[in-house]
């Protein structure tokens, strides 16, 4: 049946968005399915064209079965297109969400193991164990989506530029800030970091610090530090 493949695509895409806490890793781009749907659309297109040409304009207004046939094919093709775009749009939403979750750190987003990118704060041991099962974000994206992500990153970098001397737009907005200082433990080596006010801190795994939240927010978001 026309449209079966497209239905398969949207159902899968819908299922992948059902769970947001914990956020599931983005599923791999369904390239084979998409290619077959595009093929189906092209076949429908050719079929409509040949049918219309073969019968000519006169019969189009009289032959009801032909009109019906053409309408069904036409609608199927339109529906396929809609499903394809819906699929892409859902993924675009997911990609953007992950970009914001990562505090706008593109390099971090692409290199981090998928489990950390997915936002569940599991320890290092389980993270590396899971790594083999779930694809990281880079391999889940199509080349076009990769371009989109990079483009989006550039757009937002430009946009937040005008705010940057006062505040970092990409810092988290889940909770309003309560305390000025935060106790953190270093989960991953971050090396030497220059904080606001020129203070230099050498973050080594296992060490604890008490620092201003606004200065280390980004490192917490990116999983280098953990709140105690």
């Amino acid at each position: 049946m026309y449209g079966d493949l497209a239905l398969q695509l949207v159902t899968a895409s819908h299922r992948s968005t059902l769970s947001t806490t914990p956020q599931l890793p983005l599923p791999k781009y369904a390239l084979p399915l998409i290619l077959s749907i595009c093929l189906e659309c092209r076949q429908l297109g050719t079929s409509i064209q040949t049918a219309a040409e073969a019968h000519g304009p006169v019969s189009l207004s009289q032959d009801r079965s032909l009109v019906c046939n053409l309408t069904v094919q036409h609608l199927s093709a339109r529906r396929n297109k809609r499903c394809l775009l819906a699929y892409l749009q859902t993924r675009v939403g997911g990609i953007k969400e992950r970009w914001w979750d990562a505090g706008g750190g593109l390099a971090y987003l692409l290199t981090a193991p998928a489990t950390t990118a997915a936002g569940n704060g599991t320890g290092e041991g389980t993270a590396s164990g899971m790594e083999t099962e779930v694809p990281d974000l880079r391999s889940a994206l199509s080349p076009q989506e990769m371009d989109f992500l990079k483009g989006y990153n550039n757009l937002l970098l430009d946009y937040k530029q005008e705010f940057l001397d006062v505040l970092d737009l990409t810092a988290g907005i889940d909770r309003p800030p309560g305390e000025l200082m935060v106790d953190v433990r270093v989960v991953r080596d971050a090396g030497e970091v220059v904080l606001e006010g020129g203070e230099r801190v050498d973050f080594r795994k296992g060490e604890r610090f008490r620092l201003e939240r606004s200065g280390v927010e980004r490192l917490i978001v990116q999983g280098f530090l953990e709140e105690v």
């Binding site: 659309c41 093709a77 775009l85």
Partner: peptide, 14 residues
Amino acid sequence: HFQHSVLDSLPEWL
């Protein structure tokens, strides 16, 4: 993004 991903491989009227 949409164009490169799918629209370019659909018939022109779509």
